[in-house]
Each structure stands twice: as C-alpha cells, then as structure tokens.
Amino acid sequence: MFEDERNDKIYNLIITSGIDNNNEYAQFTEKLYSKVDFLWKESMSGSYATAGKQFYQKVDRIILLAGLYNDNKELFEDLLKASEEHNIPIVLVRPMGLEEVPEVLEEKAAIIVGWNANCIIDSIKDAAETM
C-alpha cells in the first residue's frame, strides 16, 4: 500500500437493521469486514428518534439498506431526520439484486451504491464530498 493511500480513520457508522427477511444486514457487514484495511465501528441506539446531539456528533455516515425500507419505515424516517438535523451523509445501498430504490430515500442520499465491497468502502469514504 502506498503511503498516501493509507487511511487510519475509524468510520463511525449507523447501519439500518430491524426486520430483515433477506439477511441483508449480515451480508452488508460481511462486506465491510472483508476489507481489512477499512476501519469502522457501529453506533446503535434503542431509539434514533430520541438519541441526542451528543450521540449523533460522533457518527460519520448513516448507511440505509434500501431492501429493509418497506418493513422498517419508521426507523428509516428517524434516520433521515437525524441525517438532516445533524448534517450526516447518507449512503444508500440498493436492495440486493435490484437497481431501483425508493424515491424518498434516493432524494436524501449523498451517494447510492450496490453490493460490491470496494464500491461500498469508496462510497462511505466519499459520501461527505457529495453533500
């Protein structure tokens, strides 16, 4: 690895979970774990609607797994609102095997990505630049 490509930043992520009939959350986190040179941790809250400024100021990106949207709309709405209020970029991941994403999510996303691990990592790193 070249010296200028090295990135020791630890990205603090919120990744949507909830009702997940297709196991997309586990598949997504496997993609992150497969890239050993990408450092990340996950922030979780019992309620994203009531999590305060102190919680959100530590978050670098919100990852919305679009395939979970229909069964978890309230969670997505809370995270969309938090993204806007706290200026946190959204990385929208297309539903597994599909190109279409819900329009309400597409409008708020800083970047939209598929399921390629390298593209996911690049999107997380680049999301702030597209806001």
Rank of each mutant, 00 (worst) to 15 (best):
E129M: 06
C119T: 04
A109R: 13
A110P: 05
K41L: 14
D8I: 05
D78I: 05
I19S: 11
V59Y: 11
M131P: 00
G97D: 02
A127P: 02
D37W: 13
S83Y: 13
L68P: 12
Y48T: 04
L79Y: 10
I90Q: 03
D78E: 11
M1Y: 07
Y33I: 06
A110D: 07
I10Q: 05
V104T: 11
A49C: 01
I63C: 09
V104L: 07
E106Y: 12
D37K: 07
S83M: 10
T29W: 09
E84F: 09
I10T: 13
E100R: 14
S123C: 05
F76W: 00
R61P: 02
K53D: 11
D4W: 15
M1I: 08
T16C: 04
T50M: 07
T50A: 06
Y11G: 05
L68M: 14
E99D: 13
I63F: 11
E74H: 05
P102I: 10
S45N: 10
Y69H: 14
C119M: 07
V113D: 00
E106A: 14
I62C: 12
S43V: 01
T50N: 06
D126N: 15
Y11T: 05
A117C: 04
L98T: 01
F28V: 14
A128R: 13
V93A: 02
E77V: 12
D126Q: 13
P89A: 12
R6L: 13
Y56L: 00
I19V: 15
L64A: 07
M96Y: 15
N7H: 00
P89T: 11
A82H: 10
L13N: 11
N118V: 08
T16R: 04
V59M: 10
M96C: 04
V59A: 10
A117H: 09
D126F: 07
F38P: 05
K73Y: 01
V101G: 01
V93I: 15
E100C: 01
E84C: 03
Y11I: 04
L79M: 14
I19M: 08
G67E: 02
D60C: 01
P89V: 13
S17T: 09
R6P: 00
L105V: 03
F2T: 10
V101P: 01
G52C: 05
V93E: 01
S34L: 05
V93T: 02
A127S: 15
N72Q: 04
A117M: 04
S47H: 01
N70C: 02
A127N: 04
E24G: 02
A82P: 09
W40Y: 15
S34V: 09
G18W: 12
Q27H: 06
A127F: 03
V36F: 06
I111W: 06
E84Q: 14
S34P: 06
L65G: 04
D20F: 06
E30R: 09
G18K: 12
V113M: 02
I120V: 14
Y48L: 03
A127L: 05
I111Y: 07
G18A: 10
E42V: 14
H86D: 11
N23I: 06
E129I: 05
K81G: 00
S43M: 11
G46D: 04
A127Y: 02
K41W: 02
N7I: 04
S17E: 10
S45T: 10
R6C: 03
L32R: 07
R61E: 05
E107V: 08
K108N: 13
T50C: 00
D122N: 13
L13Y: 12
Y25F: 15
T50K: 06
R94K: 15
